[in-house]
Design a protein around this nucleic acid. Structure first.
Lengths: 175, 175
DNA sequence: CCACCCATGTAACTAGTTACATGATTTC
DNA sequence: GAAATCATGTAACTAGTTACATGGGTGG
């Protein structure tokens, strides 16, 4: 269950409300692990039960707004989890199923769908590259910054790969 | 719900029992959409209820062995689904969460884990490349073969990307 | 005062995982 | 005759998605 650990990491970086976490998951963290606000609230409640985090009404904030912070046992749990080995993700891509269906039952016109996705990948790549220029173009980066850069580079490489692949796919499907 | 559609595709390619499907999912199809036998049996039962597939006791086979084949409404459903647009997958990678945790709480020794994964990716790449040489090295391929090759190339590109990234990660973590 | 954003949640569902269980057939 | 493989399934759980619901605060 990585969502809890993703939330712990995020809360260590900055104690926040569920809402703020959900918004951050729409951005940076969500690029490699996304979640809806419902899931986030549920997992925060579970983590509070287990004593990994604590929430307090935010003084001066809106009424009802709760700020979560990580407790020592949460940090311990995160450390333990992060040093346990786990298998790399499996790709689980609908597009491949569709292509295989196309090959099995005959052309169903996937070229447009590929084009649409190509555009999406290009857009994402552009946004990642903007972040890269903005945050990681200095000559010497701290260890922490280098690691965050590394994560971003995984995203960039993935999008670049998909773009190249999509172009290849277009060529084959448009024959 | 792509698993049902992946199963339909697989059954169109070759009518099979649940067990055979499960074994095939461990290989080719499972490279981009994996499933356990429990899930497969459940989805086959649901598809039979909906009239997408039909099963019959396999004469001459083992007792109890059921062979599934796709009915017209199943093929129709597959065609419809495959021509509906859907968003590309999100990467959901535990490793990225771990790296971010490492950056947030300090070094937790991820270098070994990266090495372990590097080896796994290299092994997968090797196995994909074997398939490529075996099945797709002819000069001219049919449309169907080109599409299956395209699917394989997505896997190859992904593994190559991960290998390059892992080496980069090793360099940064071993500093 | 209306629309939009902040902020939290419940309920119901679908998909995927893990553990357990059973029995037949083939192979050594 | 024992072990491996074929073949099917149930039960219980965890994770993720979709739909619905509520109310306060802010800006035009």
């Amino acid at each position: 269950m990585s969502l809890q650990h993703a939330l712990l990491t995020s809360l260590i970086e900055k104690p926040s409300s569920g809402y703020e976490l959900a918004r951050r998951f729409d951005k940076s963290i969500g690029y490699f692990w996304n979640a809806t606000h419902q899931q986030i609230y549920r997992e925060l409640a579970r983590m509070e039960e287990k004593g990994w985090v604590r929430s307090s009404e935010d003084e001066g904030g809106r009424p009802g707004k709760r700020r979560f912070q990580v407790l020592p046992s949460g940090k311990e749990e995160l450390t333990m989890w992060a040093s346990t080995s786990s298998d790399p993700i499996e790709l689980r891509d609908e597009m491949m199923v569709k292509l295989r269906a196309d090959a099995a039952i005959g052309p169903i016109g996937l070229a447009d769908e590929i084009s649409r996705r190509l555009a999406l990948h290009q857009e994402r790549l552009r946004s990642y590259q903007e972040i890269e220029v903005r945050d990681f173009s200095q000559a010497s980066l701290s260890r922490e910054a280098q690691i965050r850069h590394l994560i971003l580079k995984a995203g960039i490489a993935f999008e670049e790969g998909r773009i190249a692949w999509s172009k290849d796919a277009q060529a084959i499907l448009q024959q």
